[in-house]
Amino acid sequence: MAIFLLRRLGVMLLTTLCLTFVVFWLTNLQPNLEKLAKTQGNMRMTDAQVASWLEARGYARPILMKYGEWLGVVPGFVNLSADGSVQARCLDDGMTIETAPRYCGVLQGEWGYSTVFREDVSDIISIRLGLTAKLMLWVMILMVPSALLLGVLAGMREGSRTDRALSTISITTTATPEYVSGVILIAVFASSAVGLKWFKGTATSAMEDANFENFFLPVLTIALFGMGYIARMTRASMAEVMTAQYIRTARLKGVSFPNIVMKHALRNALIAPFTVIMLQFPWLLNGVVIVETLFNYKGFGWTLVQAAGNNDIELLLGVSVVSVIVVLVTQLISDIGYVYLNPRISVS
């Protein structure tokens, strides 16, 4: 098991490095940097001014070197210009060039500074991530049990009327992306023109004080889309298990139908959906971004949109790293969980 974990962690690390490098490269392309120079310096800078601005701040150097600095394995950039002013990557307020650390990258906990929010990236991310975690927690609490229930109920008697009805529901929800279901839900439940006015159409207030009224719609919107997918996987897996020979064995042993489902079918049927739920995370992030934008809930997804939309390079990098790591960790959990759920795979 230890070797397996180590190997997986190694692959994870490699993946993270590759992906962050791609993000770093894409965000540090010349047009992006020019835009950065103009937004940070002066909108009317000439090309030559832009070039020297970038030069002075160390942006004009080879990409690998800059990546190394950002990562914290290459000493930070220091530029002592002729007029005595100092430009250094690791220089923070209240530091001199002598007291500033040599390395300041992600590994040292220095995630950089957001040009849009005028705050440290690590602060922004930790706050926003917390808000999104709250959202996701409730999404999971709503989505997973109901999806499994839906799937198991539909799959245990394939082709029955219950199955047809529940399958139609789950197909419909998978066909409804968040920006469609969100719009429809707001129209029905929150519109001030017509509709029921049960809930609020925005979740801004839920950031401090989440309650049923302001938080249910965003949670439901994300949960619905993922739910249909998981339910269909569970149904397929359950239906397959129910036709297995060992279910017939159980039936011909005289086990009653509820017991067949609970004792014999369930564990086998849940192996596949478990992996699916875990692999849903990258897609859920999609939903998070949409829903947070739609309901104006200023979490991680919202931050991503702000960072990407405003060319906030360091924030965008931070957001990317975190989301990639979240995805990879869930994949690892899914692998380990799969091993534990499925006795056929032995771990030496």
Binding site: A244, Q245, Y246, R248, T249, A250, K263, H264, R267, N268, I271, L341, N342, P343, R344
Partner: peptide, 10 residues
């Protein structure tokens, strides 16, 4: 099929 007629997770 003996393998198929025993529950793999029990």
């Amino acid at each position: 099929e003996p393998m198929a007629s025993l529950n793999p997770a029990m």
